[in-house]
Structure formats: structure tokens, C-alpha cells
Design a binder for these strands. Structure first.
Length: 709
DNA sequence: GAGTTTGAAACT
DNA sequence: CAGTTTCAAACTC
């Protein structure tokens, strides 16, 4: 307790952090479900691989995160628990504004894999959250908040009861930006904010009275980035834990961090907290904050989505900062409206003259509507300087966060609460520039998709749709959501769905029933494969499907095959016939004749080469500055890199659909691995085919037909 | 978007 | 445990 940890900042946006334990580059964030875990790890700069098995993380990133409960027994967790909160000793970068939308275009797509962009970190320093400097926050106040550890603990099972799982957790991590200066102009605002965020009455009878108010939110600048021209907008989940600049975990809104943020409306600050079913704890914390803000406050009941975004932006304009917390699955949502405009503040009583009333009206309207109609509200986050704009979108399909930026750029962030779902942003920048590519979501999609790789049956190419169960009531493993231990959302198109919080009992019952039948039914399907010596040829994949597939028709080269879908090779566990899994065939799958095998291999390899050629073509034609070539450690494309020496594709070219992210992902090893180790792609020719290039043209050479594995 | 194919899950 | 049915995702048109 009380140890001071100074975390050095990365020096470059593209600099990868180094795990102090293993000295490897840190594994990037994998998906959203382990947000808090990754937050902790990021703050400690300890990579996921050092928490879990490195090879397992490589091959089963999602499973690792699904197994974050393991952390509870991890000494690292104890270590984290023993640390006092962190606060930065270096200021956030200043100079990016929403008004100018000068966010740098982040790397896209493949960033999450080997190329995760760990942006510039702040030097963080822990401080004692139990110090006397907690004005206005009594111990009783503290009881109102679920600790971040509790949130994590609660999050370890999607069907948890956050209130039932009171743990013996203590302090959280607080990151305070000491450098945040308070423009006098905004002093009143901050005071107002803080006054508004009055916690004196916030209570949580169910909480442990011994608990200190704790980490409330995880914020991270750079999570979402907006292109100045509105042509590019992305949410970079990697940034969420990458130690990026302003990374805040508030002890409470009364905490200095919160003050700083709110007192500095021009600070470049963004945050996004996804509220999934596993984030009830965090959500509860959020709920507490907003519960006791006297006004303006709107309560939106009976929400089902699971997002929460809070954001402030650095803008030279005085933003109306409205923080809207969206609760999920029948829990309430709270909406905050922070006005920074002094005039508006002074005239706060005269809301008719201020835009905030517009918010209020709309929010209240939304509340009424939601209360009366039990509508499913998509995620709502923060709205900036857009009092005249729609605050909350009731479009279920949007399932996102609607941001109205001062520059008239409306940013719609689409994200499912589900960790495996793609995240997307749409930017309506009609007033400031060309319309963004319709498929802005694609970039994010790819980003998050990368993050969610190796997870079977997760992604459905850019949309927010999820399961479509009709008969199973989403209470059987047929249902992807249920199988992933997630609740269905409004994004699902299922019928008679019972996989909702309101049917929690049914869900748990079904869960238990299935587990009684098969205790491992919800266990990761892909497990690490022990290395076979050091011969890479004998280690087709670092993981394999636990039970193996049983494919008959698809010959394991389509997503019907769970092995293929998981991006792993087939193994002896498989009972497939005519296996042609490009990620690796099971031993003894060479029953086909040499010619047939060669044909198959040629076809498979040809497809890979074709895709690679497309990529190269796109790259050459696009020549985008953000298209960052990097060296490839990975055998297949080390050959391709001959086309462009030392070239690999950290991102797909922007605005190009010539090669989809998914395709690229597929080409680059299937599921978008999140580690940055060389990927094992079985198209590296079981028969020893070699891909070489000459003057930019790809050629494939084949060894003797007698060559077999 | 509708229909088909496919293989896992569930059932017998 | 094997065979059959159910189911929903993946795929095709």
C-alpha cells in the first residue's frame, strides 16, 4: 500500500510499451470485456501475457479475457490491489481540439494486432486515495460507490449480481492530472459542477460501510478520435488501456481528477466506459454519481443498452458538456448536463434561453418516453455544443453514442456493449466537410474486430446485429449471446428472447442446466496447444479447438468449421473428413492423393496470394500517409514484403473497400490476432510452397510433389 | 432478403 | 454412446 509507481511514458504514438516482467511488447487490449483488467495492467505496464500464459494469450485472446476471473486468484491482482491509485505527473497533451477536430488519424485495422498503437503515455504516479484531501466525501459517501475492484469482481461473470458480490476490495486507482490548470473563467463552472455533483446524500445501503469511495470511471483520451475533416473517426480501444495521455480513474467526482476535468473544459479529454452486463459494478458507480446531481438531471429508466460514455473535449469553444450515462437492461440511466458557457451558467435558471433546456426537455422527454414505452435506448454518451440537436437517439439500430460536436460534427459511436461487437463511429460532418465514408464504421469495426479476434461467431461484418434466434429463446448454446454469456441487446433480432436481465433467473437456470450437462459448455473452445519442439513446421498453431470439429462438407475451410472459424488448425480431436483447414490440418489428414492435395494447396495458397495482391494493390494505389509499413515477422508475408521491402500493413487503406478488414484479417492469419508475435498461418504451405516476388508480381513455387508433411 | 447449407447443440 | 432432430450461423443466389 502506498507504493509509488512511476510509469514512463511512451515516446511515440506507435511505440509499443514494454512489459517490465517479460520485456516483450505488451499485448494490446483484446476486447472490451476486460476493460478494467486491461486498465490495471496498462497502468502497471504489465502485459496480459504475464498474467496469463503467453502462448494462450496469443492464441486465445478472447478466452483469456473471458477468463478474467482468473485474475482474482492472480498474485498480480493482489499486487494491483496493494497499490495506491495512480495520478499523472505529466500533463495531458494539449493542442488537440474538438473544435478543430485535430485528432490525429490513428492507425487503422491491423493496429490491434501486432501494430497496436500505444499512444503517448503519461507519467503516472500513485497517490493515496485515503488521504485527507477528499473534501466533501465522507466515508459514508464512499459507501455509495462500488469499488473498481468490485466492479471487476462483479464483471467476472456476466450473470452476476453486482450487489451480491461485495468483495473485500479497497482502494481503486485514481489518476489525477495535476497539470490541469483551471482557467479562471471556468472556475465557476467547475464549482458548479462539483456543487452539482453533490454526494452528501448519495448512499448505498447495501455497500460495505468500510469501503472508501472508489474508482468511478475509467477515462481515456484518444479513445475516440475524430478526423478534422470528418472523414475519419475511430474509436481505438487500444488506447483505452494503452497508457494514453489522460487516463483517469476517478475516486469520485469530488476528486481532483474530476475537478480538473470539469474545470478545464478545453482539456483534451475523452472517456468511454462500456457498460456491459459485466460492468454492473462500474455502472452502479456511475449511477451513484449521477443520482445526486441535483440538476440538471434527467433520469431515463428502463434502458437496455449497456454503454456509457463520458467525454470532455479540448475545445476552444465553450462546450456544453453533457454526460449521459446509459444504464442497461432495465436499470436506470442518468443524464448529466454540464454547461461550460458562463453566460449559460449565469442564466442557468433561465433555461429557456440556454441550450441546456433543450437537453433537459429532450432528456426528460426521453425519460418519459422510455418510462412509458419501455423503449430500448441505445447508448448515449456525451453531447457537445449541440443544444439544438437530438440528444438521445432512440434508434435502436444505432446502439451507440451520439455526439454533437461544436464544429457541427455529429459523431455517432456505434458500439454494442458486447466485447466482441464491432465498434463504429459515424461522423456527420456535413457542415464542415465532405461526408465521411459511409463505412467509417469499418475502420472501427476492424479495430475492434481485431480486438475481438479469435472468437467464434462474434462478428457480423460491421453491423450491430447479434443473434437471431427464433426458437431457442436465446437460452441455449445455439444463441451466440447466451453462449458468450452475454445478455441479448436491442441489437439482436431474436424472438421471444429470455436472455435479458429481466429474465435473469431463467438465464441462470438455463446456464446451470447446460453446465450440469456439460460443465465445460461455456469454457473456451480453443485451448493452447503445447509446443511441439522448436520446429515451427510441427507447430501449426499455438492453439487448437478443444473438442475438435466434425465437419463433413465444409472440409474445414469455411466458418461452419469451428476450428477454422477460431483460426486454429484441426487437431486429432477433430473428426472432420477431408480436412483442408488452412490453419492446419489434423495429423493424418493427408489421405488425399498428391495431386488432389496439391490442388487444394494451390487453391488455398492462391487465394491468400490473391488477397495479398489486393492488399498490395490497394496500398500502392492508396498511398495513404497513415498506411504504416512495418516489418513482418511472419513467414508468408516476409515473402510478400519483398514486393515492398520491409513492408507490412498496419492498417488497411482508408476509404478503400477493395480489401475489407476482415479479408485482410483472414489473409493475415484468420482472426486478427491481438498479439504481436508472428502469426502461424498454415497457408505457409504444408507442402512447402514458397511465395516469392519478382518486380512486384507474386509467384508461387512448389517443391517436389512428393513433399508432404 | 430469402432460401439453402452446414454442423453444433439438443434430444431420444 | 449413437442416431436423429433442432437450431441458428454461414453461405449462396
Amino acid at each position: 500500500m502506498g507504493a509509488t509507481v512511476v510509469i514512463p511514458p511512451a515516446t511515440s504514438v506507435h511505440e509499443l510499451l514494454e512489459c517490465p516482467v517479460c520485456t516483450n511488447s505488451m499485448y494490446p487490449p483484446i476486447h472490451q470485456s476486460a476493460l478494467l483488467l486491461r486498465t490495471f495492467l496498462s497502468l502497471l505496464h504489465i502485459c496480459t501475457g504475464c498474467i496469463f500464459n503467453h502462448r494462450y494469450v496469443k492464441s486465445n485472446p478472447r478466452e483469456v479475457e473471458n477468463a478474467t476471473w482468473m485474475l482474482m486468484d492472480s498474485p498480480v491482482f493482489s499486487f494491483i490491489n496493494s497499490l495506491s491509485p495512480i495520478k499523472p505527473v505529466k500533463s495531458a497533451q494539449i493542442g488537440q481540439t474538438f473544435s478543430s477536430l485535430s485528432f490525429p488519424s490513428p492507425p487503422r485495422a491491423f493496429t490491434s494486432s501486432n501494430l497496436t498503437c500505444f499512444k503517448e503515455s503519461k507519467v503516472l504516479r500513485r497517490h493515496n486515495p485515503f488521504g485527507a484531501s477528499r473534501p466533501g466525501l465522507s466515508s459514508e459517501d464512499g459507501n455509495k460507490f462500488q469499488t473498481s475492484e468490485e466492479a471487476i469482481a462483479d464483471s467476472f461473470h456476466p450473470y452476476h449480481n453486482s450487489r451480491e458480490s461485495q468483495g473485500n476490495f479497497h482502494d481503486g486507482i485514481s489518476v489525477v492530472d495535476d497539470s490541469i490548470a483551471l482557467p479562471g473563467e471556468h472556475t465557476d463552472f467547475s464549482a458548479e459542477i462539483l456543487q452539482a455533483l453533490n454526494y452528501n446524500n448519495c448512499g448505498n445501503p447495501g455497500s460495505d460501510p468500510g469501503h472508501e469511495a472508489n474508482s468511478l470511471e475509467v477515462f481515456n483520451q484518444g479513445l475516440c478520435q475524430f478526423d478534422p475533416k470528418g472523414q475519419e473517426s475511430e474509436c481505438n480501444w487500444d488506447n483505452l488501456i494503452s497508457g494514453d495521455t489522460d487516463f483517469f480513474v476517478f475516486n469520485s467526482p469530488n476528486d481532483a481528477a474530476f475537478k480538473g476535468i470539469m474545470q478545464k473544459p478545453d482539456s483534451h479529454f475523452m472517456s468511454l466506459v462500456l457498460e456491459s452486463s459485466i460492468y454492473n459494478g462500474l455502472r452502479d458507480s456511475k449511477l451513484k454519481i449521477e443520482d445526486y446531481r441535483p440538476e440538471p438531471l434527467a433520469i431515463i429508466d428502463q434502458m437496455q443498452d449497456k454503454h456509457c460514455l463520458a467525454m470532455t473535449s479540448k475545445t476552444k469553444e465553450k462546450p456544453n458538456v453533457e454526460v449521459v450515462s446509459v444504464m442497461n437492461c432495465g436499470t436506470r440511466r442518468r443524464c448529466l448536463d454540464f454547461e461550460t458557457d458562463s453566460v449559460q451558467r449565469k442564466n442557468s435558471d433561465d433555461n429557456l434561453k440556454s441550450g441546456s433546456l433543450g437537453y433537459e426537455k429532450q432528456l426528460v422527454s426521453a425519460k418519459r418516453k422510455s418510462s412509458s414505452q419501455q423503449c430500448i435506448m441505445p447508448a448515449v454518451g456525451l453531447h457537445l455544443n449541440a443544444p439544438d440537436k437530438e440528444v438521445i437517439s432512440n434508434d435502436e439500430s444505432s446502439c451507440g453514442i451520439h455526439l454533437n460536436l461544436p464544429s457541427c460534427t455529429s459523431v455517432q459511436i456505434y458500439t454494442s456493449y458486447e466485447h466482441q461487437e464491432p465498434l463504429a463511429i459515424e461522423v456527420d460532418s456535413s457542415n464542415i466537410g465532405p461526408q465521411p465514408a459511409k463505412d467509417n464504421s469499418h475502420a472501427l469495426d476492424s479495430t475492434v474486430n481485431d480486438v475481438s479476434q479469435n472468437s467464434p461467431k462474434k462478428k457480423r461484418h460491421g453491423d450491430c446485429k447479434r443473434c437471431k434466434c427464433k426458437k431457442s429463446k436465446c437460452l441455449k448454446l445455439y444463441c451466440e449471446c447466451f453462449a458468450a454469456r452475454d445478455y441479448c441487446t436491442g441489437n439482436c433480432s431474436c424472438k421471444d428472447c429470455c436472455n435479458k436481465l429481466v429474465h435473469k433467473d431463467k438465464v441462470i437456470q438455463a446456464h446451470k442446466q447446460i453446465e450440469s450437462r456439460n460443465p465445460l459448455a461455456f469454457a473456451p473452445k480453443v485451448i493452447p496447444e503445447p509446443e511441439i519442439g522448436n520446429d515451427p513446421n510441427k507447430t501449426p498453431a499455438p492453439a487448437r479447438h478443444k473438442r475438435g470439429c466434425n465437419c463433413k462438407q465444409s472440409v474445414c475451410i469455411k466458418k461452419y468449421c469451428e476450428c477454422f472459424q477460431a483460426g486454429v488448425g484441426c487437431s486429432l480431436s477433430c473428426r472432420c473428413e477431408g480436412c483442408k483447414n488452412t490453419f492446419g490440418r489434423k495429423e493424418g489428414a493427408n489421405s488425399m492423393g498428391v495431386e488432389a492435395q496439391l490442388e487444394v494447396e494451390t487453391e488455398a495458397c492462391g487465394k491468400v496470394v490473391e488477397k495479398a495482391s489486393q492488399i498490395i494493390e490497394v496500398q500502392n494505389s492508396d498511398n495513404h500517409p497513415d498506411f504504416i509499413p512495418i516489418s513482418t515477422p511472419f513467414p508468408l508475408f516476409s515473402s510478400l514484403s519483398e514486393v515492398k521491402p520491409n513492408t507490412r500493413w498496419s492498417q488497411p487503406p482508408k476509404h478503400s473497400q477493395a480489401v475489407s478488414d476482415q479479408e485482410m484479417t483472414d489473409v493475415l492469419g484468420g482472426r486478427g490476432r491481438s498479439d504481436r508475435s508472428p502469426m502461424t498461418i498454415k497457408t505457409s504451405s504444408p507442402s512447402g510452397k514458397r511465395i516469392s516476388t519478382s518486380k512486384g508480381e507474386l509467384t508461387i513455387s512448389f517443391p517436389s510433389p512428393n513433399h508432404h508433411r
